[in-house]
């Protein structure tokens, strides 16, 4: 099977290290060879860098890609933003000789060259294609008795023309991976809507960003779930830390736990909540924690 290097990005190592740990534990258990990617930087953040300057975006992204080319490994991303940024840059540099020449001209200054020898993968896309829900079920040690509101996030599946993961209005592949853990993925209003964080909106227009988030949270609460599951640390941060900000701003009392898919899968593979950093979230929901500890101990 493909050898991978784990691209951490910014939010995972610097805010939610539980996702880093969970990803490593899961892939180890699944027998996939995943190494570190020493010296990698910000992907760079598409909302800012792709909005600012294409040459800079490509230069920074290509450096990260070359680091993995040197290891002879495909890049594994656990973030929709990093995936979008790196996969798009990789694709553009592979197909556009002019862009590649000017980017390589820049890379020459640090003794690097983009060769176009590797692929950029997303954890969900990788697990779906290389394992699939049926094969994944063979690894499940603790089937999860949980009701889940799944949030795909935008940049894993869109723009669909380049992502090639099927249609975007009502996709099901990620739901299938969630249900492979034993959890139930419930439908809810505006499931495919953006969390409100991307495109520089969370950093530049926080009030708007939180209004969008509040709408999502209201829809999710109505569905009556145990937790939200995502595959993007920026969505994760928005749902988790943003939830507290929403409560402060709108006087609401949301307390919906948030898990990255690596953490959900980790629980089902038999790892304990504290190994996966689930307690390190901003949202502290004691009832939920008790439930996942019971599952983890084989008590339910």
């Amino acid at each position: 099977m493909t050898k991978l290097s784990l691209f951490l990005g910014c939010i995972v190592p610097n805010r939610y290290p539980g996702i880093e740990k969970a990803t490593k534990l899961c892939f180890q258990r699944l027998g996939v060879d995943v190494s570190d990617l020493p010296g990698a930087s910000c992907c760079p953040a598409p909302g800012i860098f792709k909005s600012f300057d294409k040459a800079t975006w490509l230069a920074l992204a290509s450096r990260n890609i070359v680091l993995s080319e040197r290891l002879g490994r495909d890049i594994l991303t656990v973030c929709n933003g990093c995936y979008g940024s790196l996969a798009d840059a990789n694709m553009e540099l592979k197909r556009d000789p002019e862009m590649r020449a000017s980017t390589n001209n820049c890379l020459k200054g640090i003794g690097m060259e983009f060769k176009g020898t590797i692929e950029v993968r997303h954890i969900i896309e990788f697990l779906y294609k290389e394992f699939g829900p049926e094969r994944l079920k063979d690894y499940i040690a603790r089937p999860l008795d949980l009701k889940v509101a799944l949030h795909y996030g935008c940049h894993m599946i869109k723009p669909s023309k380049v992502r090639n993961l099927g249609e975007t209005e009502c996709p099901i592949f990620f739901d299938e991976l969630v249900e492979a853990t034993g959890a139930k993925s419930l439908d809810y209003t505006d499931k495919m809507m953006c969390c409100g964080a991307g495109g520089g909106v969370r950093s530049g227009n926080v009030a708007v960003s939180l209004e969008m988030l509040e709408h999502k949270l209201a829809c999710i609460r109505r569905a009556g779930v145990d937790c939200i599951v995502n595959a993007c640390p920026f969505c994760h941060l928005q749902f988790d830390r943003g939830q507290l900000a929403v409560n402060e701003r709108f006087g609401t009392d949301y307390s919906i736990p948030v898990l990255h898919y690596s953490q959900l899968l980790g629980l089902a593979l038999g790892f304990s909540p504290d190994e996966l950093g689930i307690e390190q979230n901003a949202v502290q929901n004691i009832e939920f924690l008790a439930k996942v500890y019971e599952i983890s101990a084989g008590l339910r």
């Binding site: 935008c154 869109k158 723009p159 209005e169 809507m193 953006c194 495109g199 520089g200 909106v201 969008m212």
Partner: peptide, 12 residues
């Protein structure tokens, strides 16, 4: 111009 979250729904 900076209120777009780049969710790509319009483009799709």
């Amino acid at each position: 111009l900076w209120l777009c979250t780049t969710c790509y729904t319009c483009q799709e």
